[in-house]
Design a protein around this nucleic acid. Sequence first.
DNA 1: GCATTACCGTAACACTTGTTATTCTAATCT
DNA 2: AGATTAGAATAACAAGTGTTACGGTAATGC
Lengths: 180, 180
Amino acid sequence: MARKESVTIQDILENAFEMTREEGFANVTARKVAARVGCSTQPIFRVYKNMDELWGEVYKKAVLFFQDYYDLFPRTGTVPFSNLGMAYIAFAREEKNLFRLLFLSELPEKKSLYEILNGEKGNVLFEINKASAMGCANPQGMFMRMWLFIHGAACMSLTGDYDLTDAETKKLLEQEYANG
Amino acid sequence: MARKESVTIQDILENAFEMTREEGFANVTARKVAARVGCSTQPIFRVYKNMDELWGEVYKKAVLFFQDYYDLFPRTGTVPFSNLGMAYIAFAREEKNLFRLLFLSELPEKKSLYEILNGEKGNVLFEINKASAMGCANPQGMFMRMWLFIHGAACMSLTGDYDLTDAETKKLLEQEYANG
DNA sequence: GCATTACCGTAACACTTGTTATTCTAATCT
DNA sequence: AGATTAGAATAACAAGTGTTACGGTAATGC
């Protein structure tokens, strides 16, 4: 009957996502994605209604990527929120462009920080419960305080104003928790 | 002899700066600035070699604007770094676009966070000395810890994930200092 | 082997960007 | 008043954007 497709939706989305990682979200244009895939712009618009739709999918993929990143991140933290915090700060350091997209951009479809962090598995609630079980009187307040700290460290690494190693992060977060 | 200029360098720079405040740095284009000034793009290129030069001047003006903002900010803080922190967080809340430009962008001419904060007057050193005089054993470490916290609160207000009033900011910073 | 038809490349449209060439305008000197 | 000349408006260029029209290509059913 008809011709077989030579460019798949995965080809397009994956390349667009990798471009976001490497060059930033703003560089994901129709022509540049096509060039990376090695095709014309046509297959993109066969698969996606328009670029907004592709960008939305890249964003969704970034959310999942972060959540996987956290799932696989070594659990070496000893206090509540430190595993989440260490992963978040490492993510900002290692995946600057994705971090900007997820946690500093102004997209209409953007999820809240809490939504992304908590995810399907309730990562934040898990840590809050852990704090509670460990005798923390105000675990929500502790989360808020810890997270301001964590977000600050993450955002500062973006601009190179202050880059923490994992070991330094760990120590700081443990001190910060103890101080609360 | 010749015609008198009807568009001054101030007209251009001031409008470009206000556009940055209101619409963000990325919207400062030659045509949009000209439209706001009420002229063609020609006077811009008479006064500035190219747009990079104008953008550079807008950036410099933003640095000075922040430093003035801090100078005029009410000094209600009771602990070291709290005045600086309150001003910084309020600035992020009130001047989101300028904050992004100054503290989250990736311009080649970008100054470091410390350079901007410390400024001509040595604001940071002043606060560090204050902490030292108040008996803080490790004032540099305290600054670092406080500033991660402050930067976190500021960056979080950008995305609307957590917006602190001045009063809340004040209380948090005082607690945070006491905990150190 | 041939018709069908979805796929994809080419080319174009309409728009935006920085920048520049050209032409017109107006202020000043003579 | 008229010549001079810098300033500014118009228009264009080249590059980039999203998007679409068109036409060639190739895989499948017959």
